[in-house]
Design a binder for these strands. Structure first.
Lengths: 126, 126
DNA sequence: CAGGATCCAAACTGATACTG
DNA sequence: CAGTATCAGTTTGGATCCTG
């Protein structure tokens, strides 16, 4: 839609594009694996295999896929060392660190309301 | 694992259970639909059909499914009015509001780094 | 070791039909 | 109106095999 006619001002158009872009980014980033990777990277740099261990339950494929996405978005930096065997390190960039701050908030929230949620869940299931 | 032997103290056991529970909650809540619903509910109460409109792109099925999950976790309250036609309203509970605060943070982050991300993406795709 | 490619299972979607 | 249920089609995820 909104392809043939355009009723609003150019500024309105920009806002709409920005909104849909923001929404797209949000949809990509707001998935558990991406956020758990961000959280795992915390302050320290990690290798692919270390991430695989730290982010419990993540598959090889999802790790690769999400790392590519995060790299593409400029949230993590990928550093390849031309050694044998190869060594690849991932580090949060500044935007990545900023995101991590909010993810930390979510983790804190989870722990804070753990008891409440567990109780509510038990109640609901009865 | 950790079923046959248990090496640590009982306190350690509790911490592990809490951690795996926290992780479970995080995994459920940290998906785009749940977070977008939380965000949409913001301060105001919304009906099912209003949510369907506000959370752009969500399917009937995913909306129902996520609302049940959020209700089960005690993050949204579901209020049914026995009228014809029926009216069902969803409101954030206090824990839900607390979560929303962190989701707001993520939304803010998205808008703040919009330009940076878009640029990085373009660079990566080249 | 890192990660691409492949195949199969599970999850999501959209449409539609049915209930209270 | 607000669901539940179901079906077909698409997408996503996991496991495995292969390479530099």
């Amino acid at each position: 839609m909104v392809t043939k006619q355009f009723k609003g001002s150019p500024e309105e158009a920009d806002l709409r594009r920005a909104d849909s872009l923001a929404r797209e980014i949000f949809s990509d980033v707001a998935n558990k694996w991406a956020l758990l990777i961000i959280e795992a990277l915390g302050e320290r740099t990690l290798r692919f295999s270390e991430l695989r261990n730290d982010v419990e339950g993540i598959s090889h494929k999802m790790l690769t896929q999400n790392l590519r996405m995060l790299e593409r978005y400029g949230l993590v930096e990928r550093k390849v060392y031309a050694t044998v065997p190869p060594r690849v390190e991932y580090t949060l960039t500044e935007p990545g660190q900023a995101l991590r701050a909010t993810v930390d908030g979510m983790c804190g929230w989870t722990h804070q309301y753990l008891g409440h949620i567990e109780a509510s869940r038990r109640r609901f299931d009865a």
